[in-house]
């Protein structure tokens, strides 16, 4: 189970399992520098408060890997302090909480230390993964570099935003990893791409993904990419199919090893520079 950006109750339980599973598999390459006391204290804070999004040891999950020598928003210590203290507005990186000066120093030390951890190489081959991606029809629903269908989210930069464990889960268990909204309003953690079924008074059934919702209305894009604006009082049924996805589980069509290739390909998608 990969926890989601704003953990739901379900995901929170899953997180416990994930953490338990990960402690069995701590992978700290022999080459990484010995952690200082600050790094150790920062690691503990990170485990409790950041790893649900950034993954175990910051290896990336729903949120980007921090095991990178140069971070996009936090290229130096001063900007790293600001990012951890205030979050990144409108980008899904919250101000997790207020820190004491000591805690902030420890988190900064730990994230800097993560930057020196050499990234674990992925087992698959991106070139082979790209062939698999085209063969099983992922592109019918996903745009990569301007090409592809629009039912699912664009994947052009998916390797920069998500970690490999999350990508694996997205393929084998699509309903568990719905992308989350990042805007402050409504932005209260609504799943994006939540499948919904609405039935109008006239008996017409509309199945698609929720684009937005307020108390009175809902906006849906159906499987043919048609847009529907509906007033709830005019519906006889509105089901939110939480825990499901319009993305099919295609892992049965993959030969052994092909899942690794696919993940390596997705991880290589870093977007336009």
């Amino acid at each position: 189970m990969t926890p989601a950006i704003f953990p739901s109750r379900r995901a929170w339980r899953g997180l416990g399992l994930l953490l338990a599973a990960c402690t069995l598999a701590v992978r700290l390459p022999a080459a990484s520098p010995a952690p200082s006391a600050d790094v150790e204290a920062g690691r503990k804070l990170f485990r409790d408060l950041c790893s649900n999004c950034h993954g175990h040891e910051g290896a990336g999950a729903m949120a980007p890997s921090l095991q990178r020598p140069r971070l996009t928003y936090a290229p130096d210590e001063a900007t790293l302090r600001v990012v951890i203290a205030d979050g990144i507005g409108g980008r899904g990186m919250p101000r997790v909480r207020r820190w004491s000066e000591k805690e902030l120093r420890e988190l900064v030390a730990y994230v800097q230390w993560l930057g020196a951890v050499p990234a674990t190489p992925l087992p698959g081959d991106p070139a082979k993964g790209r062939e698999v991606f085209n063969r099983v029809g992922c592109a019918t629903c996903h745009v990569v570099n301007g090409q592809g269908g629009t039912l699912g989210p664009e994947l052009t930069a998916i390797g920069r935003m998500r970690g490999p464990d999350y990508l694996r889960e997205a393929i084998v268990n699509p309903g568990a990893t719905l992308p989350k909204g990042t805007l402050p309003v409504p932005g209260r953690g609504y799943d994006e791409y939540l499948p919904v079924v609405a039935v109008t008074r006239a008996g017409k059934e509309i199945k698609g993904v929720r684009l937005n919702e307020d108390l009175m209305t809902i906006q849906i894009r159906d499987e043919q990419s048609q847009f529907h604006s509906l007033r709830k009082s005019e519906l006889t049924r509105l089901d939110k199919l939480t825990g499901t996805s319009l993305m099919p589980n295609l892992s049965a069509q993959l030969a052994p090893g092909e899942l690794d290739h696919l993940i390596a390909y997705l991880a290589s998608l870093q977007g336009q520079p």
Partner: peptide, 18 residues
């Protein structure tokens, strides 16, 4: 520390559709 956060921990709200 005067003028600094003195909260002794944190809290994460469970937003979302629940």
């Amino acid at each position: 520390v005067p003028g600094r956060a003195f909260m002794g921990g944190g809290a994460r709200i469970l937003t979302g559709d629940d």
